[in-house]
Design a binder for these strands. Sequence first.
DNA 1: CGTCGTATTGAAATCCTTCAATACGAGTGG
DNA 2: CCACTCGTATTGAAGGATTTCAATACGACG
Lengths: 242, 242
Amino acid sequence: MAQHHSTPQSLVDKIQRTMSLNEEDRLAVAALPWRTQRLQRGATIVSRGDRPTNCFLVHSGFVIASKHIANGVEAVSGLFVPGDMPDLFGLYLDVMDTDMRAATDCTIALVDHGAVKRVCSQYPKLNAAFWQQTLLASAILREWVITVGHRSAHARLAHLFCEVMVRMTEVGLSSDFRCPFPFTQVAISEISGMSIVHVNRSLQELRGAGLISFDGKELEIRNWDGLKLVADFQDDYLHLSR
Amino acid sequence: MAQHHSTPQSLVDKIQRTMSLNEEDRLAVAALPWRTQRLQRGATIVSRGDRPTNCFLVHSGFVIASKHIANGVEAVSGLFVPGDMPDLFGLYLDVMDTDMRAATDCTIALVDHGAVKRVCSQYPKLNAAFWQQTLLASAILREWVITVGHRSAHARLAHLFCEVMVRMTEVGLSSDFRCPFPFTQVAISEISGMSIVHVNRSLQELRGAGLISFDGKELEIRNWDGLKLVADFQDDYLHLSR
DNA sequence: CGTCGTATTGAAATCCTTCAATACGAGTGG
DNA sequence: CCACTCGTATTGAAGGATTTCAATACGACG
């Protein structure tokens, strides 16, 4: 697997949306021993039960966190976009409680836990920044618990689309309410926890209402306010700066 | 409201289940400016939109995190037991994205964010410990996303009971598979996101199968393995030591 | 041209909610 | 002590949302 060094610019940018890093901090992040790696769709990144010594940053593509439950069903608990560090929580949790896999072809950058801990202890700003990244992830989880538990299926889809659009926008990967979203309907059904049939119908509903367009590659939100309304989407949980 | 100083023993204990603190660390935690406070059931602790300067530790009672969604419904995203710091995530998230309220009469201990940050920067072990507490909370959220999204209603209840029992046991509040659980069925319906009627019926089912007994005050698990089975409960996400 | 993954549609089945009514128990005021 | 009320628990039954089953269509690719 190809490996080379890489600048974690997306991470630095993401951190700087909520915290100001000085030159020294930025350099320290860049100086971390990142190892870039290309992954094919479906590749396992970490497995439940692992005792990780690394964590990773998503450079491109989408990553999914899931567990296999009772009947062997894969239940998804999170979707990650470039700039995210999906398993950063492993830094202080000895054993992984979920699987992570590449939901699309991906490029990721691995870093050693020890190195991360070292910069954290040396640069208080970075300690705060990495900690904050884990907290931002937990804010999304809180919202997912509510969405999955209390919103109707088509609101769930709408909510997912709103969230993805905002998160992609945050890292500069959208324009004009369009962003990559290279998922089949069966993939969307896994992510959203809905049946394939119902995904299909809800999608038609959202399309029919002129709220979105989606071709399996790219998502376009054609009526942001309308979609937000059906999704009951309030973006405060994403803690956008300002 | 009565306020006095208090030893955060439950927190220290909880931390020590996964990390070894030395005498100095323990003293530093105890020396934090904790302010104990008594709360009546239903009391608001923090509100969505707040810019907190404190966080709190639950001493006794149960705390609930929730948001008010579309139709004014209160959607619960978390349940907290003694020893938990439910809003610790506010340490590095400027504005609260959820409400927190006392689900029962409670006693909590408030600490100033500044003081927490200070001990964290001074005691690396405590920095790790507090960070880890937020990560343990996020592990529970991941499991909740899955439970709410993929498990049947009666499995959801069973799962909740398993989780509560383990978490109460962790902090020494259970014995013989019995622990306080002073909730009405309507409260359980809010926590679990199920309708009241269905909570009632699922409860009867679990009782009828001899798995639990529950009288609105105390929960008893009469058949742990059986309950685990219907709940599809695997405790790894709680990261119990050993 | 055949095949396989994907998208779409119809229809039945299931789970869960909602509506509605009754029962039960504790607390309150007469 | 009784009558009343209110919150809680329970039950029946209808309605709705979503899943599951089954079939068909579509499109890319070898």
